[in-house]
Amino acid sequence: MADSAGQKIAAGGVASLRLSAGVALAALPWLVAAIFVLAALLAPWLAPHDPVAGRAAPMQQMFSDGHLLGTDALGRDTLSRLLFGLRPMLVVSLGAVALALAAGGAYGLVSGTAGGRTDWAMMRAVDILMSFPLILAAILVLAALGPSLFNVTLAVAVSQLPIFARLARALAAGEAARDYVLAARAAGFSELHVMLREVAPNIARPLLVQATSVVALAALTAAALSYLGLGVRPPAPDLGYMVKEGQELLFIAPEQALLPGLLIAVFALAVSFCGDQLADVERRGGGA
């Protein structure tokens, strides 16, 4: 008797332990993402040195005095540059997704709600945009507008536009066929009203979930552009460009190329998991 009670308690303990381990595991990506955001925000206080003007002996090793991760070819503290390098990554990836979400979402909303020939024409335009080599589009944007943080954001946003336009269109078309929309139209509300007040609120959530899951893609695309030397603005630190700069030093100071790449990967991983969780919740919510 006592035995089985003990077993039950033990089993319960294991279960709750599993549960809390599951919760902790689920919280981990959010925690990591939060750390990235905080570190970027607090970079001026966290960074031991000025990432741009700092001037020490160049090419110091890791763990040298005062420079935990050493210094680069120009004598700047690597740790400080990594911390400040988080900023453009976050600004570009979040900014680009927000831009693409707003523009692509609005486009898809119009297309899906309008239906008919308008819808067909608008979607063929998206098809054409998708057949346009994306890297070419990004290069053209950056070469035409010049290297700046906003222009990089714009270039990445262009590459994500079709994702949101297509999703928003599909969702809006689904909603537009529903009774409440038909009712609103029958009641004589304008198309604009139908779009903004009836359809939009109902497609916002899945779009936001999708947005979360493409932040990682945006960060990777931005890093690839920097790696190709496009849109970079030295001496401001940028993780993708740090990989490029560090690449030729692989045999001398491998950490200079490896660390920034690792940070990009960890960030992309964390936000991917976050997006995945949101998508799971959305799927279950949608099913119920």
């Binding site: 160049p58 090419m59 090793q61 045999f251 100071a253």
Partner: peptide
């Protein structure tokens, strides 16, 4: 420049 991997090792 200070070295991470020694020359010989490399």
């Amino acid at each position: 420049p200070p070295t991470a991997i020694t020359r010989r090792r490399f």
